[in-house]
């Protein structure tokens, strides 16, 4: 069973809120280096699945194995430290810190340095932070207050923050939401670049089918709290059932 190439193995995962079965028996395996898009209609359980994986909710049932370790039900900060970084559907940054400081604080917290009360913060790890800003293309705006960035830049900064967490697995929840098509292109290029050059395993939720199919190497279709189909974009595209339940609805 133990396949060293599997980074994330989810088995029979369930979570309900009262009568709502938000995650209803999810089985999913993500291989190292994968670039997976998660699609599905509203309320299919995509964000909830991310929330369970990152420890925001404890699963009612089932296991989540990450890198060979069981993480289901662990607190969020522990899961974050084990190498799962996430971004959020709504912009979730530190508005009164600068772009640079946003990435830097993430870099330091994840490395357990947030209890250091004596070192000068601004001088720490400048090189690594600059590298990340370079990667996401926000180097020119390093000293701008994050709260004053454009929406697109804030979303990109989110990705920068997650990169600072030296992630093994990156969960991006609708990284392109609310973006212009031009900005969307920048972000999808960025996601591809992170996957290709840094070798980080990525799962991202995407609403726009075209975007999902053009970027991802694997597509997971969720429906009513379950993984309905999982395969390459070509597979999914030709899957009649998926066409019926998903594409038919759009």
């Amino acid at each position: 069973m133990a396949d060293n190439n599997n980074l994330l193995e989810i088995k029979d995962l369930k979570l309900s809120f009262g009568n709502v079965h938000a995650v209803d028996g999810v089985n999913l395996t993500v291989k190292k280096g994968d670039l997976t898009a998660v699609i599905g209609p509203n309320g299919a359980g995509k964000t909830t699945l991310f929330n369970v994986i990152t420890g925001y909710y404890s699963p009612d049932q089932g296991t989540i194995s990450f890198n060979g370790q069981e993480i289901g039900g662990s607190p969020s900060h522990k899961i974050a430290r084990s190498g799962i970084a996430r971004s959020f559907q709504i912009t979730n940054i530190f508005p009164t810190l600068t772009t640079f400081e946003n990435v830097q604080i993430a870099y330091l917290i994840i490395r357990g340095k947030s209890f250091n009360t004596v070192s000068g913060f601004r001088k720490l790890n400048r090189g690594s932070v600059e590298e990340i800003l370079e990667t996401v293309g926000l180097k020119e705006k390093a000293n701008t207050l994050a709260g004053l960035l454009s929406h697109g830049d804030q979303r990109t900064l989110e990705i920068g923050i997650t990169l600072a967490c030296k992630p093994k697995l990156l969960l991006l929840d609708e990284p392109t939401s609310g973006m212009s098509s031009w900005e969307t292109n920048l972000v999808t290029d960025l996601i591809e670049k992170i996957s290709r050059e840094m070798g980080i395993t990525i799962m991202f939720v995407e609403h726009d089918m075209k975007v999902a199919f053009s970027v991802a190497r694997n597509v997971v279709v969720m429906h009513q709290g379950q993984v309905f189909a999982h395969g390459t974009p070509e597979n999914i595209r030709s899957n009649q059932e998926v066409r019926k339940i998903y594409l038919g609805e759009e």
């Binding site: 604080i105 250091n116 070192s119 913060f121 720490l124």
Partner: peptide
């Protein structure tokens, strides 16, 4: 001005 202080702001 330390990482602790900036974590507090965060």
């Amino acid at each position: 001005n330390s990482p602790f202080g900036y974590t507090l702001r965060a």
